[in-house]
Every structure is written in C-alpha cells, then in structure tokens.
C-alpha cells in the first residue's frame, strides 16, 4: 500500500509494510526440500516451530507431527477444489457485534481445564 499523501511517509513503513507473503515465502525458503515438494511441511519446519514454542519433541513425535501437519494441509487442497458461486463472499464485509456486555464465565469455570491454578490465576512455567 503505497502512501499517496505526498508528505514523505517512509515507503517501508518502519519495516512494517512488507507484505506478509514475503515473510511466508522467505520462511518457506528456509527448507530447500520445499521446492521439491511445494506446500509440504518438512521435519525441519516442525522442528523450527517446536523451537519457537519452546517444546521438546523426540524423533518419533517429529515424524508424527509432520505427517499430521501435512494431512491438515491436504484439507486445503480439497477446499481449493470447491467451486465458489460468483457472488459469494463479495458482500461479507464489516461483520460487527454491538458493544453490549454479556456475562463472562465464572472464575471456576474459566480455570476448570487447568490442573494447577493458583489464587485464581493460571499457572505457567517460568518465562523470564
């Protein structure tokens, strides 16, 4: 989105403006095998994501996660085959709700899926 206001806003928007597609493609080139199998997740991708998430996974899990990621991506291949009616989606903009408060969950309900809550908080590993 080039700035048209003429007052000299920086073209790359403080480094923000690169379209995310660029990042996606640069991410993809991390793995040369990608070019051989476009759209496929490789074990190196899975490892990288595990590193970002700070999760240790072993060889077996690596293979299992990788194949499951790829299964998910295959769904999208199926979706890509669906023929869309010409107009569909055209008018689906600005879907809003009004600023009206609805009741929240109780604290107990909110914490019911966690194993070790403390003083009403979720408890997470050390992150600092």
């Amino acid at each position: 989105m080039a700035c048209t206001c003429g007052s000299g806003h920086s073209p790359d928007n403080n480094g923000y403006k690169k379209p995310y597609q660029d990042y996606l493609s640069s991410y993809r080139t991390l793995e040369p095998a990608r070019e051989a199998y476009p759209g496929m997740i490789t074990e190196r991708d899975t490892e990288h994501i595990a590193q970002l998430a700070d999760i240790a996974i072993d060889r077996e899990e690596l293979a299992s996660f990788t194949s499951r990621f790829n299964e998910i991506l295959e769904y999208f291949d199926i979706l890509d085959q669906v023929e869309m009616a010409e107009e569909s989606g055209e008018k689906a903009y600005n879907i809003f709700r009004e600023d009206e408060v609805v009741p929240s969950l109780s604290q107990e309900e909110a914490l019911s899926n966690t194993t070790a809550p403390e003083e009403g908080f979720f408890r997470a590993p050390r992150v600092m």
């Binding site: 003083e119 009403g120 908080f121 979720f122 408890r123 050390r126």
Partner: peptide, 9 residues
C-alpha cells in the same frame, strides 16, 4: 529468576 508465572486473562 522467577520460579513460575501466573496468568490472568
């Protein structure tokens, strides 16, 4: 060096 983290959403 905190031992763990509490989270309030």
């Amino acid at each position: 060096r905190p031992k763990y983290t509490l989270v309030d959403y």
